[in-house]
Design a binder for these strands. Structure first.
Length: 778
RNA sequence: UGCCCUGUAGCUCAAUUGGCAGAGCGCCUGACUCUGGAUCAGGAGGUUUCUGGUUCGAAUCCAGCCAGGGCAGCCA
């Protein structure tokens, strides 16, 4: 059963472009990391998205390093990023570097200066910042804004050759210092950074392009079609397009689309914060299995398949949300469930002595690696020998002196099955001076083994164990979430000082994120491949730590626990379920404010006049705030159009079409004509919208459009009757449900009838007829 | 309080573009089981943020409100 692949807005865009042949069917995306840190789960998402989207449409993806900042970038990071891509199973069409485009970028910059679209500003950073204005105030022009082209050209050349110190000059695009989008207020294109060697270009360049000046141009150079980035860059998109226009890249060209970044519960991806954890020793390194880095996840034992399935399950949208960790864990378990053989291990050993089993006796039985409901991978071994003797290790957690209600494990007097072996009856718990249980004594019930006469004996539960005589010692690293807070990034956001913010952030660390224990694994594990993953029954999925585990000193990482209904019951007793504790949402009291109430003097007057002229109040309020639209309404009314209908048409449909269709021009007489056709019910409301859309995209003759699209309203009962009959015949179930009282189905049935009757059908009349038909012929 | 983005189940996303509001995860119940796992069956959970408008019919179109997020690095 194929899971239904959720479609998303990006797939839709690419599908549309492919269908329309925008790029000749070509799809080329890019993964554009800056090599200034190790890849993390956020990068993984971007990789999956960019490569996955291209793959889906038969396209390809470039790996391109956005390496325009010599101060932070390193070859080491670049290699790690490429490793991550390949580990995830993707093959870049090319591995490229923005730093290889520096010459090209520079030539374009010179062209922009020559065209009067860029200039060298010789102010310092402080002055530039002060002149930028604020989000609510426009900026002011730099005194160097109109400096002669030749001078800018000369300075730019000198900057490039390293004749000026850092910060002495910058190159800026000449756009608009009063632009409401601050990114458009003469953004910087180049900065001087001459003492710092770039990891690939050395000291060849004394100036470096900024992100906006490099990114879109790099996309253009490579012929990228769809350039995906995270949401915060949406304000950069106008600049992206402005630069492409300025250097003369014509459509069809690369376009930028934004998606929401992935925020995972109990996880941070901030480079700064991850670095802090590493540098200050809160984790063992970038590849600490608790880290959300690709290296960490990999070391933990998570497979790329799980990561990809997770990203797929999360989907893409433009809503900044927070993904439940349970979804991630589900993906990991789901991946491993059919792949990891089952084995027995005990992480916190407690001695179990079987008093009626001879101490010298050992039996070995063949135990299945796979549960009955898992189909083993092709060629996988099906069983392994499992030794059993009179002294075993069991899990401390599996014995309770004072068992709570519903306990299905060991307690004095209880009968429990030892997995793959016998049912035992617990006789006695031996405690030490501190009252701690140090040994459990039990009786083997013979005949309860597989194949025995009493094999089917009903017991309360099943418990895992390891034979003490043959057990292999092992260390277990039991990982839990690194943070105790769901949104650790937010901690300390409002702190007064950096130190407080840091303390607040560190305070969200989970002190129990790593528990290391000593225990045992079953004998067969001594020969397991180091990279093999197992499910230790009832404990979780485990794999050997690739760094610390040795043949004679095994170290197992817990990749993920099993789902645990018992632990959950425990936890939910303390904290009431989310749903139940949800406070009766204090809804903001939204006093109904009509648009009309917000109008000021002039607009208020226009509003009154429009209402007096016959427009509806809502429509009049819209028109009153939009003078050209109000004038259009007036002109159309003068041309003889019905005022009420015209008001709606202009305030709603014309308003929308005007912004959707560039260069749409509406002739008042045409609008009047459409309004009257609608008012006289010669065309339907939907028909009127069609006509307006045609007019917006160049149509001129209303009657011709109506005729051509068959929009003339058909209200004649005889003409509508066949559609009714067909609909009733085609949907007997819905008809029955409707007659049984599910009256909301009238909408559905009307829709079906409208579809059958054709575009010009009078939906209102059709609905009436349908209702009658449904009521009568019971 | 300028411009931009976004509000659909607890979470993440769908809804054939105006016609029966669904899925996965999570949660609950039951069946099965030598894993308190898995699997299977069922269930709860929605005023589609809210208020108006248009329409035979609105999650979808129009207006406004409210809420969340982004933008004032010579970072990306």
């Amino acid at each position: 059963m194929e899971p239904v692949r959720p479609s998303n807005f990006l797939e839709e865009i690419v599908a549309d472009d492919t269908a329309a042949g925008t790029y000749g069917g070509r799809v080329l995306t890019r993964f554009p990391p800056e090599p200034n840190g190790y890849p993390h789960i956020g990068h993984a998402m971007s990789i999956c998205l960019n490569f996955g989207l291209a793959q889906q449409f038969g396209g390809q993806t470039n790996l391109r390093y956005d390496d325009t900042n010599p101060e932070t970038e390193r070859e080491e990071y670049a290699r790690a990023l490429e490793d991550a891509v390949r580990w995830l199973g993707f093959d870049p069409a090319a591995v490229l570097y923005t730093s290889d485009y520096f010459e090209r970028l520079y030539d374009w910059a010179v062209q922009l200066v020559k065209d009067g679209k860029a200039y060298v500003d010789s102010q310092d950073g402080e002055a530039i910042r002060a002149q930028r204005g604020t989000v609510t105030e426009p900026g002011t022009n730099s005194p160097f804004r109109d400096r002669p082209v030749e001078e800018s050209l000369r300075l730019l050349d000198e900057m490039r050759r390293g004749l000026h110190p850092d910060g002495a000059h910058v190159l800026r695009a000449k756009i608009d210092m009063a632009h409401p989008n601050m990114k458009m207020r003469d953004p910087l294109m180049y900065r001087i950074r001459r003492g710092v060697p770039h990891y690939r270009r050395g000291l060849e360049w004394a100036i470096y392009p900024l992100y906006d000046w490099a990114h879109g141009q790099s996309d253009a150079i490579e012929g990228i079609t769809h350039s995906l980035c995270t949401l915060e860059f949406d304000v950069n998109r106008p600049l992206y397009d402005w630069y492409l226009d300025a250097i003369g890249i014509a459509a069809p060209r690369n376009r930028q689309y934004e998606f929401a970044r992935l925020n995972l519960d109990y996880t941070v991806t901030s480079k700064r914060k991850l670095l802090m954890l590493v540098n200050e020793g809160y984790v063992s390194g970038w590849d600490d299995p608790r880290m959300p880095t690709v290296a960490g996840m990999r070391r933990r034992g998570i497979r790329p398949e799980a990561l990809k399935a997770f990203v797929e399950a999360v989907g893409v949208s433009k809503v900044n949300g927070r993904v439940d960790l349970a979804l991630f864990e589900h993906a990991i378990r789901n991946d491993l469930n059919g792949l990891a053989p089952r084995a027995l291990a005990v992480t916190r050993p407690l001695k179990l002595t079987l008093t009626n089993y001879s101490p010298n006796q050992t039996e070995v039985r063949n135990a299945p690696y796979w549960p009955h409901d898992v189909t083993p991978p092709e060629g996988a071994p099906l069983t392994r020998p499992l030794p059993f003797s009179g002294t075993l290790w069991i899990e401390q957690d599996d014995f309770a002196l004072d068992p709570p209600k519903g306990w299905k494990r060991l307690s004095v007097g209880a009968e429990v099955r030892l997995r793959h072996a016998y049912v035992i009856r617990v006789d006695e718990a031996v405690t030490n001076g501190a009252g701690e249980v140090v040994e459990v004594k039990a009786t083997v019930l013979s005949g309860t083994e597989a194949g025995g006469p009493d094999e089917g004996r009903k017991v309360k539960g099943v418990v895992h164990w390891v034979d003490a005589l043959t057990a292999v010692p092992a260390r277990f690293r039991l990982y839990d979430r690194l943070f105790a807070a769901a949104a650790p990034e937010d901690a300390g956001r409002d702190a007064a000082t950096d130190a407080e913010a840091k303390a607040a952030f560190l305070g969200t660390l989970n002190p129990y994120s790593l528990t290391e224990t000593s225990g045992y694994v079953e004998a067969s594990l001594a020969f397991a491949a180091p990279d093999a993953r197992f499910q230790f029954e009832r404990l979780g999925f485990f794999g050997q730590d690739p760094v610390d585990s040795r043949e004679d000193a095994l170290v197992y990482n817990r990749i993920v626990t099993l789902k645990d209904g018992w632990a959950k019951r425990d936890a939910s007793a303390e904290t009431p379920t989310q749903g139940a504790s949800k406070p009766a949402a204090a809804k903001p009291s939204s006093t109904a404010v009509s648009a009309a109430d917000l109008l000021d003097g002039d607009a208020k007057a226009r509003f009154e006049a429009l209402v007096a002229a016959g427009a509806g109040r809502e429509d009049a309020a819209v028109l009153a705030q939009d003078v050209p639209l109000a004038e259009l309404f007036g002109a159309a009314q003068t041309a003889g159009g019905d005022a009420k209908t015209l008001g709606t048409l202009v305030a709603q449909d014309v308003r929308r079409l005007r912004s959707e269709t560039v260069g749409a021009v509406f002739v008042p007489a045409n609008l009047a004509h459409v309004a009257n056709l609608l008012a006289s019910r010669t065309i339907s409301p939907a028909g009127a919208r069609d006509v307006l859309a045609s007019l917006a995209s160049g149509g001129a003759n209303v009657d011709a459009i109506v005729a051509e699209h068959g929009l003339s309203l058909v209200s004649n009962d005889d003409a509508l009757a066949p559609a009714i009959a067909d609909t009733l015949a085609a949907h007997p179930d819905e008809v029955a449900r409707y007659r049984a009282g599910e009256t909301k189905l009238l909408g559905f049935l009307t829709g079906q009838a409208v579809r059958r009757a054709g575009k010009g059908a009078d939906a209102r009349r059709l609905g009436e007829l349908l209702r009658e038909a449904l009521a009568s012929s019971t």
